[in-house]
Design a protein around this nucleic acid. Structure first.
Lengths: 162, 162
DNA sequence: GCATCTATACTCGGATAAGCGATGTCCGAGTACTGGAGG
DNA sequence: CCTCCAGTACTCGGACATCGCTTATCCGAGTATAGATGC
């Protein structure tokens, strides 16, 4: 069980877009990738997923790029994770009980199987934590730890402009 | 993010071993796999992992096979998941902040990164649910839903004996 | 009849292949800017 | 001097390779049993 690497990239990138949001400018993939030295084309792929999820908006052409489609207050960590990872649960009950003796063909063991129920409860707990934390919450904590982050980020993006 | 299929097999198989435990006999891979029509060699691989984790014990040779190494009360769902999946967390913080401007080379961002902290909290919640549920708890719920399960399972294993 | 020995069949355990999704790359479609020509 | 137009460079978006892990399989080492042999 391993999350896509893109989740980490997407979360950090959304935060960065939050810092430079007020400038009004869109940030192209190349610059966003250079910030963390990531492979640009692959980061672009992840950002496309965020656009499809309605988290970012994109503009083609010169002075184009990505911006936040909503406020950080309205984006939960779960939103980003789901956008990248998809909605499928980590534990997929394959209903092997159907193969066992004495199985009822009419029963949907994805709901009836006690083991599947437990795994679902665990995933629910996981999702609840992620859903209870917005990117604005994260931003607040980052500000506590490193108050210079916003200015430093904005300045970097200004200087690498050309 | 997807869990290994072996997790489902391992959990169901441990329960089955629980039902037939009192017979005192060991159950070989072939019979355990036939119960759900699973590929025997691959199931064997998963069971080996459970042995390494101290959940099962194995006996080679004729009349050999697997049995529970401890009571179902002393096996949590998390134990089984960890035995199959390994201990590595799903979200691996690659510390991409080290690549960013203004990064402190001495900082371990696996602990300092606010995003990594949030992901860790979520995984902790997930693990707590799985750790709070023992296989004995599962057994109890199965008994409520289908009281005939123990007898049916035992009988099946007796009849397929040869 | 009993003990011993040998051959046999059965089981786990780890080494060895195949398939598929995550990772990584590339090129085409579309758009805003820039420079120049014409009025 | 202003307006219009064409060329250009830049950006996203999706199609196309590559790699690693999950899935799957196979054979060898070791053991208990069964049967035969000798006493």
């Amino acid at each position: 069980m391993k999350l896509n690497e893109g989740v980490e990239w997407a979360l950090h990138t959304c935060l960065n877009l939050g810092w430079i949001e007020e400038s009004g400018e869109a940030a192209p993939t190349a610059r966003l990738a250079a910030f963390y030295d990531l492979p640009p084309a692959y980061l672009n792929k992840q950002l496309q997923a965020l656009v499809r999820a309605g988290i970012l908006s994109s503009t083609p052409g010169p002075r184009g790029g990505f911006r936040l489609a909503r406020q950080l207050e309205d984006i939960t960590v779960l939103d980003v994770v789901v956008a990248i990872e998809g909605r499928a649960p980590a534990f997929a009950c394959n209903q092997i009980l159907h193969q066992g003796p004495g199985a009822d063909p009419r029963t949907d063991y994805r709901e009836a199987c006690v083991i599947a129920q437990t795994m679902s409860r665990a995933e629910l707990a996981w999702r609840q934590v992620l859903a209870s934390e917005t990117l604005a919450d994260i931003r607040g904590r980052v500000l506590e730890v490193s108050p210079r982050a916003p200015d430093a980020t904005r300045e970097w993006f200004r200087n690498v402009r050309r």
